[in-house]
């Protein structure tokens, strides 16, 4: 068990290493002179040289990389080229928005997706299954931003034209100030993200459950005289839990990058929109910071999934 965790931690470290190498090579070695971006177009040769020294660009490559990683490990991601603020601070300020967004959406999509999947799998070929399939197909096919723009148009703009406010236009209100206002402002982004993602969970639940319901031990459960509800929920869903956990871990891990689109559509100032702005501004330290943070987040989620696996499967103990 200890060895297993050590193995997974080692893999997590490898992911982060590869990622750090990727951003390092991309931003410090690839075309474009960072010093020029920092110093601006009008800087003189001496000024550029000074900036280069400040950024450590005159040192050998490995030195630079080690320096970069050393600082990153301590949480020092450098300063924004634009406004000279520490990158870690800039990101930290945005995190509550993104976390709020992900948190609500996850609960919502699980609450929508899994019941639809179960309903579908319990009546294969029937009317309820077909309704479930339609939901799955629509959800899988709807690009997030199309659904978001559609929601904004119909649920915000049309009511507003009619003279009342159903949902607020955009923006984020802190949870601690007023949870209700917080939720009201996030309701549309949550719903958009959840509907699109719930389809994946409905499909996964349906497919896995259908397969599990064909297993011999489900027949045993029925032969015991258990109610169909218990057969499906206690015996069927128990085995469907593991693929769901895997999917959830991967999805939450990717969310840091995945919310970019939603944040764009709804004008939320989260980590994603920070990254998009940074790309427009060529503010490389921020991009590096966000990418590394995204990687760290995924690695953490993977490790949590592995631990859950060990807890869920007695054969792995």
């Amino acid at each position: 068990m200890g060895k297993f965790i050590a193995k997974r931690l080692g893999f997590g470290a490898l992911v982060l290493f590869v990622l750090s190498l990727f951003v390092f090579l991309l931003f410090f070695v690839a075309p474009g002179d960072p010093a020029r971006i920092v110093a601006g177009d009008k800087a003189s040769a001496e000024q550029l040289e000074l900036v280069r020294q400040n950024l450590g660009l005159d040192q050998p490559m490995t030195q630079q990389y080690l320096h970069f990683v050393g600082r990153a490990v301590q949480g020092d991601l450098g300063f924004s080229y634009r406004n000279q603020q520490p990158v870690s601070e800039l990101i930290l300020r945005r995190i509550p928005v993104t976390i709020s967004l992900v948190f609500g959406a996850v609960i919502l999509w699980l609450a929508i997706g899994i019941p639809i999947g179960i309903m579908s799998a319990r009546h294969p070929g029937g009317f309820r299954d077909r309704m479930g399939q339609v939901f799955i197909l629509l959800g899988l096919s709807f690009p997030t931003f199309v659904l978001g723009m559609l929601a904004l148009y119909t649920l915000y703009f049309l009511p507003k034209q009619a003279g009342f406010t159903l949902f607020p236009p955009s923006g984020y209100k802190p949870f601690l100030t007023n949870p209700l206002i917080w939720a009201w402002h996030l309701a549309l982004p949550w719903a958009t993200l959840a509907l699109v993602t719930a389809a994946i969970y409905a499909r996964l639940t349906r497919g896995q459950l259908l397969q599990v319901l064909g297993e011999d031990y489900i027949r045993t459960a029925r032969a015991k005289g258990l109610s169909e509800r218990k057969v499906v929920l206690r015996h069927g869903m128990r085995s469907t839990l593991m693929p769901l956990v895997t999917q959830l871990g991967a999805d939450i891990g990717l969310m840091l990058g995945g919310v970019i689109v939603i944040e764009q559509v709804y004008g939320l100032q989260g980590v994603g929109s920070l990254a998009v702005q940074a790309v427009r501004n060529q503010d490389r330290p921020i991009i590096i910071g966000v990418v590394l943070l995204g990687g760290l987040f995924i690695v953490l989620c993977n490790i949590i999934v592995d631990l859950l696996y060990a807890a869920l499967d007695p054969r792995m103990r």
Binding site: L14, V18, I287, V291, N302
Partner: peptide
């Protein structure tokens, strides 16, 4: 297999962002 795990453990939209910002 590890390579596939690795690629799947990369925040792809963020990396795409990073690549575009450079190239």
């Amino acid at each position: 297999g590890r390579l596939m795990d690795l690629v799947m453990s990369v925040p792809f939209l963020l990396c795409a962002l990073a690549l575009v910002s450079v190239f």
